[in-house]
Each structure stands twice: as structure tokens, then as C-alpha cells.
Amino acid sequence: MLKFAPCNCVYSTCIPLEKFYRVPVSPHAFDTPMPGHGRLGTTSTGSLRHGIQEGVNNMGNKRVVADSSRCIGCQTCMAACIEAHDIPGNIAAPRLRVTRTYEISAPVACHHCEDAPCAKACPTGALFFDPKNHRIGVNEDNCIGCKSCVMACPFGAVSVATTQVPVLMGDVRVGSQTKSFVLKCDLCVDRPGGPACAEACPTKGLTLVDEERLAELTAERARATIENEA
């Protein structure tokens, strides 16, 4: 079974409120403005009903989900991630990390939160909302190494590394300087095969989950809940 960390996501499927609560619901019940609603942390003039409709109509972010029951701790996913990012202008380091407890192991990677605290904390746009690719994008050129994203991430899935990069005058190298890189899952968005970690995992313990797959999992769990309570 795929395991998710607790979150505050809005349901992605439209369930009539009367059926959900089993009581009549006023059409104006959710028209109260929500303070602090929205990605920028500003006060929203919309309603909860509008927010639900917006969540249904727009594709949510994708993310790579780990199944700890299949993870054998081999770190093949980390090796594949390093190889995928071992390109000029980038840093060869894993964007996910296999974490172990006494009982289980599983890679921890960016959740690509809809209201990502790392992106909101970044002062330079090195992390940004990327609705085109349904993710939290990375622009390494803008990273200044302040580590605000590291402190903001609730999952411990973001880190910052430094390396020496050449200083060029035209095509001539005249020295080197220290450059910071924010390290987090970018979904291998430029890779034809998708996330390298999921493709390389020998036990198929990593899955790229999009809104459609998430809706399927939600429906499966809802059915299981009803069957267990029957």
C-alpha cells in the first residue's frame, strides 16, 4: 500500500455536500471569506466553495511517492538521481535520500506541496510554483544559499550544497568561485522517461503520482473504509 504523510489537501473529486453530511446544506454555507487563503499568504476574497471548485478544475502537482513495504534500502534511487543531474551547470548529488528506522526504510523526496512553504520562503525565486509542469520548480542560478527553504520544508526534503564553478571571461577560464545549489526533487522534468529514481527502483517502490492517480487512490480508500465499517 502506498503511504502518504498527513496533509491538508482539499478533495479532488466533487461530492455533493448533502450526501457527505447527510443533511441539507445551504448554498451560502461556504460563502464566508477565508483569511490567509492563497499561495501568497494574502487575504482571499473568494469562498471555500470557490476554493473547492478551483481545486477540482485545476490539475494539482505531481510527486514521487515511496512504498516503504517495497523499499530494500539499496539506494539505487539515489544513484539514479545523481546520474540524472550529473550535467554541466548542475551538481551531481541526490535530490532524495533513503531514510531508515529500526523497522522500515524509504526514500524521502519533495512533496511538491500545493502551498509550498519552501517556495514562499525563497527570496530569490530559486524555488517557484510551476503550474505548467505541475510541480515546485528549481532555478539553481538564483540560489544564494540562504537555506530558508531548508528550514521551511516540513519533510526534510530540501538541502543546499556548494561547489566550485569556473569564472569565465569569454571562453577563457580566469578563476573559480563558490556557487550554492538548492537540492530537491525536480521530477526530472527534462528527462524523457520521467523521474530517474522511479525508473531505476528494482522493486518498483517509487511511483509518480498525478491528480488522476491520487483520485483513484482516494476512491479506493473510501470504498475500503465503507466496507470496513459495514
Results as ranks from 00 to 15, higher is better:
Phe4Ala: 10
Ala5Asn: 10
Ala5Tyr: 08
Pro6Thr: 03
Asn8Glu: 05
Cys9Lys: 07
Cys14Phe: 14
Ile15His: 06
Leu17Ser: 06
Leu17Asn: 06
Leu17Ile: 01
Glu18Gly: 05
Glu18Arg: 11
Lys19Met: 03
Phe20Lys: 01
Val25Ala: 07
Ser26Val: 14
Pro27Leu: 12
Phe30Ile: 13
Thr32Cys: 11
Met34Arg: 07
Gly36Pro: 12
Leu40Tyr: 12
Leu40Gln: 08
Gly41Ala: 09
Gly46Leu: 14
Ser47Lys: 01
Arg49Val: 14
Ile52Ser: 10
Gly55Phe: 06
Asn58Ile: 10
Met59Glu: 04
Asn61Leu: 09
Ser68Glu: 12
Ser69Lys: 09
Arg70Gln: 11
Arg70Tyr: 02
Gly73Phe: 08
Gly73Val: 12
Cys74Lys: 07
Cys74Trp: 10
Cys74Leu: 08
Thr76Phe: 05
Ala79Cys: 03
Ala80Arg: 01
Cys81Pro: 01
Ile82Gln: 02
His85Thr: 02
Ile87Gly: 03
Ile87Thr: 11
Asn90Ser: 13
Ile91Gln: 03
Ile91Gly: 00
Ala92Thr: 05
Ala92Gly: 11
Ala92Ile: 06
Ala93Cys: 06
Arg95Glu: 09
Leu96Pro: 02
Leu96Glu: 03
Thr101Tyr: 09
Glu103Asn: 12
Ile104Met: 09
Ile104Val: 14
Ser105Lys: 10
Val108Ser: 07
Ala109Arg: 02
Cys110His: 05
His112Glu: 10
Cys113Phe: 00
Pro117Trp: 09
Pro117Lys: 06
Ala119Lys: 06
Ala119Leu: 08
Lys120Tyr: 10
Thr124Met: 01
Ala126Glu: 01
Leu127Gly: 00
Phe128Met: 02
Lys132Glu: 05
Arg135Trp: 05
Arg135Asn: 05
Arg135Ala: 01
Arg135Phe: 04
Asn139Thr: 07
Glu140Tyr: 02
Glu140Met: 05
Asp141Gln: 06
Gly145Tyr: 01
Lys147Phe: 02
Cys149Phe: 00
Val150Thr: 12
Met151Cys: 10
Ala152Arg: 11
Gly156Tyr: 04
Ala161His: 15
Thr162Leu: 01
Thr163Asp: 07
Gln164Ser: 08
Gln164Ile: 06
Gln164Asp: 04
Val165Cys: 10
Met169Leu: 14
Met169Phe: 15
Val172Ile: 15
Val172Glu: 15
Val174Ser: 13
Gly175Tyr: 01
Gln177Pro: 04
Thr178Met: 02
Thr178Leu: 03
Thr178Ala: 06
Ser180Thr: 04
Phe181Glu: 06
Leu183Gln: 12
Lys184Gln: 04
Cys185Met: 01
Cys185Tyr: 02
Val189Lys: 00
Gly193Met: 07
Gly194Trp: 03
Gly194Ala: 03
Ala196Val: 14
Ala196Glu: 06
Thr203Ser: 12
Lys204Tyr: 10
Thr207Val: 05
Leu208Ala: 12
Glu212Asp: 13
Glu212Ile: 08
Arg213Glu: 15
Arg213Trp: 11
Arg213Tyr: 15
Leu214His: 13
Glu220Thr: 14
Ala222Val: 10
Arg223His: 15
Ala224Val: 05
Ala224Tyr: 09
Ala224Pro: 11
Glu227Gly: 11
Ala230Phe: 09
